[in-house]
Computed example of a mutant assay.
Amino acid sequence: MQAMIPFPDISPEIFSVSLFGMEFALRWYALAYIVGIVIGWRLVVATVRRPHLWANDTPPMDARAVEDLLTWVILGVILGGRLGFVIFYQPAYYLANPIEILQVWQGGMSFHGGLLGVVTACLLFSWRRGIRWLSVADVLCMATPAGLLLGRIANFINAELWGRPTDLPWGVVFPRAAAQDCPGLEGPCARHPSQLYEAGLEGLVLGAVLLWLVWARGALKFPGLATGVFFAGYGLSRFMVEFVRQADPQFITPDNPMGYVLHAGGVGLSMGQLLSLPMVVLGLVFILWARRHPA
């Protein structure tokens, strides 16, 4: 008999209340965003308050400026994440139902879109403040993995973004019909807990590496280095996990059961891999540039 792990009975909602005939709920996913942003904010504040971590013992901004940056980042995450999901994953649907683009509470966020939103926010903030944008990007990249860790755990609790079917002993039997739709398999269908793989790689491992580089190896004295490590590290982590992550249903067809967006001869790339490859390349460029151009 195949070993498998039953999905833990955890409600996506932490609690809900009814006010004036309306239901309000706090979900784990929302809490992950909130706590991730708070942790990231405090990490950035702690970093700018330690001049010795920066070139010439001069942080690019003070703690008050970080609060302004936080507003820009939140807008970048929400707007970029939502628009990225709309454009990268379901453009036809939202073109036919444009009003639903605004319904963020219904779900549907893209990391790569959120990243583009934060990059845009970082550039605008730095331009307005007259700050070197790579230094701002470095400290943001150092602080981001905490949010990724919590977000992927919330994905697991929500029983979403699960992996492909597996017979490995740590395969998880996710609930609902879509997760149990495994052609050719009889009985419960166990899947890779790909959300937890990403939490470990993008959150714990990448976060530990970046904190070590910044706090122990003086990475902030080489503008662009932490940014490069984050881009390359996230891109590589996501690229690898995509091999066992179930493709989004809109990409799966009878002729393309693996859900590749680019494929030939039985091999191909998923949308996540296609979006992650440029991150790896750009990350390596940042790393090489930073090593040759210290502040």
Rank of each mutant, 00 (worst) to 15 (best):
A219C: 11
F243H: 06
V119M: 13
T144P: 01
E100L: 13
Y197N: 12
I78H: 01
L196C: 07
N158I: 08
V119F: 13
W162I: 00
V267I: 06
G113M: 06
R152H: 15
A25D: 07
P175Y: 09
V66M: 01
Q250T: 07
L211E: 06
T166Y: 08
F24P: 11
A32D: 01
G81H: 04
V241S: 03
I34K: 14
G259K: 00
S270V: 06
E160Q: 10
G171C: 09
Y33P: 05
V244W: 01
T144Q: 01
G147D: 07
T144C: 03
F125A: 04
S237K: 02
T227F: 06
V209N: 09
G224K: 05
Q180G: 06
Q180K: 07
F88I: 09
P183A: 07
P60K: 11
P165Y: 12
A216T: 06
R64V: 05
A179H: 09
V119C: 12
R27P: 05
G187D: 05
A92T: 10
S18I: 05
L269A: 09
G184H: 13
V280R: 03
Y33C: 04
L95M: 14
L274Q: 11
V214L: 08
S135M: 15
A65I: 00
L201Q: 10
S270R: 14
Y29E: 02
G200K: 08
P8W: 13
Y94D: 07
C182K: 14
Y93M: 02
V118R: 02
S194I: 01
I87T: 08
F24C: 10
W212C: 10
T166I: 06
V229Q: 04
A190N: 08
M258Y: 09
L140N: 05
V267R: 04
H52L: 05
I39W: 07
S194F: 00
G266N: 05
Y33Q: 07
L269H: 13
G283F: 02
L115N: 02
G76M: 02
P294G: 12
P257R: 01
S126C: 04
V118G: 09
L149M: 15
V261Y: 14
A96D: 13
G76R: 03
R64C: 00
E198W: 03
F286R: 10
L149I: 12
L185M: 15
I37S: 04
